[in-house]
C-alpha cells in the first residue's frame, strides 16, 4: 500500500474509532445517534476506497439513512432528550464557513481531477463489488447464509410483535357478558 493510502486509511480509522467512542461516551442520546451516523458514513467511505461503491451506498442508505432516521425519530418522539437552547460550540458559525470553503475547494479539485483512475488503496478489480457480482455470490456460494438471515429477521419480527402487542382480554369477557 502506498504511503498516501496508509495516511488515508489511518485518518478514516481514527475518525471511525473516535466516532464510535463518542457514541458510547456521550450521555445525550441524540448526540450518540449523530456520532453513529458519522461512524456509518466513515465506514462507507472505507468501502468506497476499496472499490465497492454499491456496498458503500447501501451502507449509507440503509444504515446512515433509514435506520438512523428511525432512531432519531424514536428518540425525539419519546422526548427524553432535551437539547440545550444555546449554541454549545463557541464560534461554530465561523468554523462552518471555513468548512464550507474546504468543501467548495474539494468540488473544484474534483472537477479538475475527475478523470484520474488512481485511488489511495490498490483495488482488487473493477468488477469485484459490482451489484451483479454481489447478487451472484449471494445466491450461489452464500445461498444458505442468505436464507438463514431471512429466518433470523423473521423470528425477530415475530418476537417484536409478541413483546409489544397489547393483551386481548376484553374480547372474551365481552362475549361472556352477553351470554
Amino acid at each position: 500500500m502506498p504511503v498516501i493510502g496508509t495516511i488515508f486509511y489511518a485518518f478514516l480509522a481514527i475518525v471511525a474509532v473516535g466516532s464510535a467512542l463518542g457514541m458510547l461516551i456521550n450521555r445525550n442520546a441524540i448526540y450518540s445517534a449523530l456520532f453513529l451516523v458519522l461512524n456509518f458514513a466513515t465506514v462507507a467511505v472505507l468501502y468506497l476506497a476499496l472499490g465497492a461503491p454499491f456496498i458503500a451506498l447501501s451502507q449509507i442508505t440503509v444504515y446512515a439513512g433509514a435506520i438512523m432516521v428511525l432512531f432519531l425519530f424514536v428518540i425525539t418522539l419519546l422526548g427524553a432528550e432535551k437539547l440545550p437552547g444555546y449554541e454549545p460550540i463557541k464560534g461554530h458559525r465561523i468554523v462552518a464557513i471555513g468548512l464550507a470553503f474546504v468543501f467548495i475547494a474539494e468540488l473544484v479539485l474534483f472537477f479538475f481531477f475527475r478523470n484520474q483512475v488512481t485511488g489511495p488503496i490498490p483495488l482488487i478489480g473493477p468488477e469485484f463489488a459490482s451489484p451483479r457480482n454481489i447478487g451472484v455470490l449471494m445466491f450461489t456460494e452464500y445461498l444458505l447464509p442468505f436464507e438463514v438471515v431471512a429466518f433470523i429477521l423473521l423470528s425477530a419480527t415475530v418476537g417484536a410483535i409478541m413483546l409489544t402487542k397489547p393483551e386481548r382480554k376484553s374480547t372474551t369477557k365481552l362475549s361472556q357478558q352477553q351470554d
Binding site: Y142, L144, P145, V148, I152, S155, A156, V158, M162, L163
Partner: peptide, 24 residues
C-alpha cells in the same frame, strides 16, 4: 464455516430472548 456459526448463534438466540420475556 464461521459465517454459519455466527448466523446459527443468532438464530438460536433471538427467539430465546423473546421466549425469556414471554410472560411480559
Amino acid at each position: 464455516n464461521l459465517l454459519m456459526v455466527f448466523l446459527a448463534l443468532e438464530l438460536l438466540s433471538i427467539p430465546l430472548y423473546v421466549l425469556t420475556g414471554f410472560a411480559r
